[in-house]
Amino acid sequence: MKEDNIKLDKILKQLKKNVPKIENEEEIADAIIFQLERKKKPQKYHFWKIMINTAAIFLLILVLNEVFYFRSKSTEFKTIPNLQSYYKNSNCSEYETAKSSSVFEEFGCVNAQSRLRKERITQIIETYETDTIKKNH
């Protein structure tokens, strides 16, 4: 057993001294760097592509939102005073007709989009109603 151990140690010593030699050390380093460069490029491109696309979509949403918001605001400001004056100057029968039929359609308030305007118009009609009742009394 002791002899076997000595023999094994001898072999191991020989193997330890003979460190595996690399042929073309530079070649391995070059291959690694090349691979890293190749890996780096698409990642960079991919990252910036995603970033630009996200920013563009975000900006588009922002712009569209602003456009629609100001459009709806401007329509509201245009229509509501007209409506107010229209009802203030009209007589009762006209008002009743308008209220029962197409008043909202007339001012383009049929869509859910213009719910806000619709609410304002309803409010105006109600105020007019209350005023008329008070006047009659």
Binding site: V19, I22, E25, I28, A29, I32, I33, L36
Partner: peptide
């Protein structure tokens, strides 16, 4: 990074 490669590749 090449320096790290050179130092540890053996």
């Amino acid at each position: 990074f090449r320096l790290i490669v050179k130092a540890y590749q053996k």
